[in-house]
Design a protein around this nucleic acid. Structure first.
Length: 309
DNA sequence: GCTAGTATCTCGCGTACACT
DNA sequence: AGTGTACGCGAGATACTAGC
């Protein structure tokens, strides 16, 4: 159920907050696989685990109850899961801003949006958002719009329940595209997402996500499993045409491979990483980074002497 | 300190709707 | 009629808390 906004728009531009250190980290995050950190961090569990993994990679503490702590109390960091539509343009779901008791205008004043592919969990890119000028005016129109009959870019959503649950501010998914934060043209990077296949494969394997393997050869029907040296049977023509295809793990099944569904991806749709080798990217996507080899983005990006604030 | 029950977090599925 | 998309709301997970 949608409710009217509780916080009146500021009607003035937010002060610009930037940080050279965060800009360097964000640029370096392109091509970063989030899976290993999400798997390894005790504090990064549940739905927000990849967002927590990103925070950790940027050098922040992963707080237990605050899923997205601000950067130096100045810049909000939001991880957005994206996937390709049929036509190759990127799509995302609606974004939670904050709970309805918190002022969303302050939260959105300066925000770093980081986009990660939903299937591979690899960072594809980022955009900084500053609530100012026409962007601010467009978002502030939500204040006067009917939350149900109009389509406001910012809304409060609640739900019916015995005691009611905490309502929260959400940004409409289309808002990111409208503001040019997500590109509106087809892209080369990322994968399509088939929700019904995903659901059925998870149901088959007790709710566990399928394991991802990157195709090593470009023809035939078999590819080597990099985790257990068994074989994966898939349709490689489909992998390279559509970006991915379901796979069947043939015997022998080693370790974790037995308990999970499998999918093979076309590695050419992954971005090149400036901070990691191809091998590090591959093993990150394929869930074969042991805890002692887990590396942190912040350790590879030198902190500049001047943060330029 | 431990445990069971409650609260709260996004995520993302399923379906209704919009568009071709 | 068929296909793709948006939105409502349920799911699954963890964090918190009260009581022992």
């Amino acid at each position: 159920m949608r409710l009217p906004l509780r916080h009146r728009p500021p009607q003035r531009d937010a002060p610009l907050r930037r940080c050279r250190h965060l800009e360097l980290l964000a640029e370096a995050a392109r091509g970063l696989p989030l899976g290993p950190a999400a798997e390894a961090l005790a504090a990064a569990r549940g739905r927000g685990r990849h967002g927590n993994a990103l925070q950790w990679h940027l050098g922040l503490d992963v707080h237990d109850s605050v899923p997205t702590p601000d950067w130096e109390d100045r810049i909000e960091i939001k991880l957005i899961s994206v996937w390709q539509r049929a036509d190759g343009r990127l799509k995302c779901d609606r974004i939670k801003v904050c709970e309805a008791s918190v002022n969303p205008w302050r939260k959105l004043g300066n925000t770093l949006f980081v986009f990660a592919d939903r299937l591979s969990r690899v960072v594809l890119g980022h955009r900084f958002f500053h609530l100012a000028g026409q962007r601010r005016v467009r978002l502030e129109r939500a204040w006067d719009q009917d939350p149900h009959f109009d389509r406001p870019p910012l809304m409060i959503e609640s739900r019916d329940g015995p005691d009611g649950m905490a309502p929260a501010y959400y940004l409409a998914a289309w808002w990111l595209t409208q503001e040019g934060l997500l590109p509106d043209q087809p892209v080369e990077l990322g994968y399509r997402f088939d929700a019904s296949w995903w659901r059925s494969i998870r149901a088959e394997f007790s709710g566990r996500d399928p394991l991802v393997t990157l195709a090593r050869t470009d023809d035939g029907a078999l590819t080597i499993c990099p985790r257990c040296r068994g074989q994966l049977r898939t349709d490689l023509a489909e992998v390279f045409e559509k970006g991915w295809a379901p796979a069947i793990h043939t015997m022998p099944l080693g370790g974790m491979c037995a308990l999970r569904g499998h999918v093979v991806l076309d590695p050419r749709r992954l971005p090149k990483s400036s901070c990691a080798t191809d091998e590090e990217l591959f093993e990150g996507v394929e869930a074969r980074v042991p805890p002692d080899r887990l590396w942190r983005l912040a350790d590879r990006v030198p902190e500049p002497a001047d943060h330029e604030h």
